[in-house]
Structures are given as structure tokens and as C-alpha cells.
Design a protein around this nucleic acid. Structure first.
Length: 312
DNA sequence: AAGACGAAAGTGGTTGA
DNA sequence: TCAACAACTTTCGTCTT
């Protein structure tokens, strides 16, 4: 037990490429690096059910727990509901006494459910968040984080005087940053009706007020996404990751657009590994211009002393 | 003909007085 | 609040493959 706790606490880093995200393959019991495919550890704990089910009915019949508690529903999925039918559990009609009692319970139950303005706010915000994050294709656990961010912002009274939508968008964006899922602010802005300025302001506000570390966007995080768009080969991707890593430690990549850095690294890696893409192709997927790719790649070559080999 | 290159001028955002 | 500034973009002519 102790060992399991320790291994959970320690953040795993891929020994091959330094990536920290892993896919757990339960059927094979392996931990696989999402970036380079390295099998990082075998014999992981299968946290799934110990039974098997082939149909939905079987699954429902065998499950012994209810829906998971979640932050993305305003009442955390913990509310009870009282049925509107005047029947008991076995389907018999209720006596008039019981019926009156149930009627009173129902009344208070409904009245107490959305009792505070915060709860009402959350209700609206969570449905908006659900819409936004599904539009952006954001996975479940990141949504939980963004819900948490929103709840923190709400309790700190940061939503007051600002539109719910802008704070929701900021929460989603920050959750992506925290989980190192590359979504740029512009992409989030595009799915909302709020101006970029307002969302940017909300983002900064939350970062300054809420006590959560938000890592800076790194060019490394963009590599998997860009390289799959470019259909690059594994070794090229790995090379690009190395380039960025040494660029980050050797030299300032700060203040530069991560897209430019990532694009330049992929360009160089492509040349070295003979898996070349044109500057235009790379510029398109990394959302910067060819000129920026050029500038960054010249800079990287100069600073890292990479010789673009003349052999071809 | 496509890709790479670099100069010049313009834009949106940050910083410091 | 404003000007200076760095990073990035747009545009365009030229060179290379």
C-alpha cells in the first residue's frame, strides 16, 4: 500500500523524451508515454471493475456504485430527486397521509435545491462550461480542473461584475495550461461570444487571486499535436523534442511564441532525420508565419551549434 | 515552379516613467 | 496615460533547388 501511494505521488517522467503524460493500457497492464510510445512501467493497477459485462443491462445489474461525484455538475451529482408519481417503490398507490407528506417534502426539496445565488450562478456556468469544453474537445479530467477553477473564482467573488462566460472561458483555458494540453487563448475565444480582451483579463485575474500554479505554455507541449498534423515519423518527433529541451535549458525561449519554437524545432528535426516538411506546411499547422519559423530556426541553429548537414 | 531567404514597414501587447 | 520596445506579421523582390 505504501509503495502504491509513493508511486502515485511521484510524477512520472518519460526517460526517453521527458514527457510527463502517459496512457494506461489496462488490458496489457502497461504505462505508455503519449509522446514517444515508450512503455514506461509494467504491472500497473487495474482500477476498473473486477467483473465483466457485455450489455448495458448487465453492467447496470453488476455495478455496485452510482455515478461518480463530479465538480462539473452544480450540486456535484450528489442531489437526490423525489419522484413525481404517487407510488411507492413496489408500484402501489400511496395512502392519502403519505401522499400529503411526500407532497410537502417535494415542495421543500425543490425550494432548497437552488437556494443561493452562487448555486444558480454555478448552474448556468457549468452548462456553459460543458458546451465550451465539448466544443474544444477537452477530456473529462481537464473539465474537472476547470470546474474547480471556476468554483474558486466564484468563492473569491471574482465573477461579480464580470460575465459568467468570460470567467468560464478563462477557467477552461487555465485548466488546459495546467494539464499541458495545448489550447491557445485564441481557440477558446473563437468559441465564445466574449472578446479576447475580457477573457485575457479574467485569466490574469484568476492567476493572481487563486492559489494554483499555472505552468507557462512550453513549445514541447505543442510537439505531439503539430507532428501528428504533419504526419512526421517518430524519430523526427523525438529529435524535435530534444532540440527544444536543449534550447530551453541552454538559452532563453521565454517571451517567444511557443508555436514558432515548436515549428522551428520540427523543421530542423525534419532536415536532420530526412523527414522534411516545407516551412509553409509547418507554418500553417503551428499558426505562425514562415518568416517566424525562419527566424526561430536560424536562431536555434546558431545558438545550439547544430550543423545542418550538407550530405543529402 | 516551388521553396527558401531577408529586408522593410506595420500591428497588438507589455513595460516603465 | 503615454511612449518605447520586442516579437510577430505582411508583403515583396531575389536567390536556390
Amino acid at each position: 500500500m505504501k509503495m502504491i501511494e509513493e508511486s502515485l505521488k511521484k510524477k512520472k517522467v518519460c526517460v526517453s523524451c521527458g514527457e510527463t503524460s502517459f496512457t494506461e493500457d489496462y488490458t496489457r497492464g502497461e504505462n505508455i508515454c503519449t509522446s514517444c510510445g515508450l512503455v514506461a512501467s509494467e504491472r500497473i493497477t487495474d482500477r476498473g471493475p473486477e467483473w465483466r459485462a457485455f450489455t448495458t443491462e448487465e453492467r447496470n445489474a453488476r455495478a455496485r456504485t452510482g455515478a461518480p461525484m463530479t465538480l462539473t455538475i452544480a450540486d456535484r451529482g450528489l442531489s437526490t430527486t423525489i419522484d413525481w408519481r404517487n407510488k411507492d417503490a413496489s408500484g402501489r398507490a400511496l395512502t392519502s397521509n403519505t401522499r400529503a407528506a411526500i407532497y410537502r417534502m417535494r415542495k421543500w426539496h425543490i425550494r432548497s435545491r437552488l437556494h443561493s445565488s452562487q448555486h444558480r450562478n454555478l448552474g448556468i456556468a457549468m452548462s456553459e462550461m460543458e458546451r465550451l469544453s465539448s466544443q474544444l474537445g477537452i477530456p473529462r479530467d481537464v473539465r474537472e480542473t476547470s470546474a474547480l477553477m471556476y468554483r474558486k473564482a466564484l468563492t473569491k467573488k471574482l465573477v461579480r461584475g464580470r460575465s459568467i462566460e468570460s470567467v468560464v472561458a478563462a477557467s477552461v483555458y487555465l485548466a488546459c495550461r495546467i494539464h499541458r494540453i495545448p489550447r491557445r487563448l485564441d481557440e477558446v475565444v473563437a468559441e465564445t461570444n466574449v472578446s479576447r480582451k475580457q477573457i485575457g483579463y479574467a485569466v490574469r485575474l484568476i492567476v493572481s487571486q487563486v492559489n494554483i500554479d499555472v505552468p507557462l505554455a512550453s513549445a514541447k507541449d505543442l510537439i505531439p499535436r503539430l507532428s501528428s498534423d504533419l504526419f512526421l515519423e517518430g524519430r523526427t518527433v523525438q529529435k524535435a523534442t530534444e532540440i527544444i529541451k536543449s534550447a530551453e535549458e541552454k538559452f532563453v525561449t521565454t517571451g517567444k511564441d511557443p508555436g514558432g519554437i515548436a515549428g522551428a524545432a520540427l523543421y530542423i528535426a525534419g532536415i536532420i532525420e530526412k523527414d522534411r516538411r516545407t516551412q509553409r506546411e509547418i507554418a500553417n499547422v503551428s499558426r505562425v508565419t514562415e518568416v517566424t519559423i525562419r527566424n526561430r530556426y536560424k536562431e536555434l541553429v546558431r545558438v545550439l551549434g547544430i550543423s545542418i548537414s550538407v550530405d543529402s
